[in-house]
């Protein structure tokens, strides 16, 4: 394993750990509710009434599907670009041999 691969693997591991640890440490006591919703609940409890409703409010299951769609569109586009860039690099011989490692 090259040093570069190792660093990449450790970075990925760190990201996963950062979000897995709260779940493990918590042991199922918290709801992990969104902070956005926490604020609106607090404001409503203080007596504030929103003066405008969302133009379109999908039902819970539909909403999670649309969130997944948003992530999928983004991930698809990102993967397409990164794949294209990688393909461009690996398919064309380097224009200047040894560029970057003189």
């Amino acid at each position: 394993m090259t040093r570069r691969t190792l660093v990449t693997a450790l970075l990925v591991l760190a990201v996963v750990a950062l979000f897995a640890v709260p779940l493990l440490v918590d042991g199922g006591t918290s709801e992990f509710g969104g902070t956005d919703a926490a604020v609106t609940e607090e404001l409503e409890a203080d007596g504030y009434t929103p003066w405008f409703e969302s133009v379109f409010s999908p039902a819970g299951e539909v909403e999670s599907g649309l969130f997944a769609l948003q992530a999928a569109l983004g991930a698809g586009a990102l993967g397409y670009v990164l794949g294209l860039l990688r393909g461009r690099r690996t398919s064309v011989p380097a224009p200047a041999a040894g560029a970057g490692e003189r």
């Binding site: 979000f19 006591t29 918290s30 509710g33 969104g34 956005d36 569109l73 698809g76 586009a77």
Partner: peptide, 21 residues
């Protein structure tokens, strides 16, 4: 654009017992 599209769609758990984008 795709990077912000993906990340802002994800809710992640945090140490406080709540989650955020």
């Amino acid at each position: 654009g795709a990077f912000t599209f993906v990340l802002s769609a994800v809710k992640l758990p945090s140490v406080t017992g709540s989650s955020s984008h």
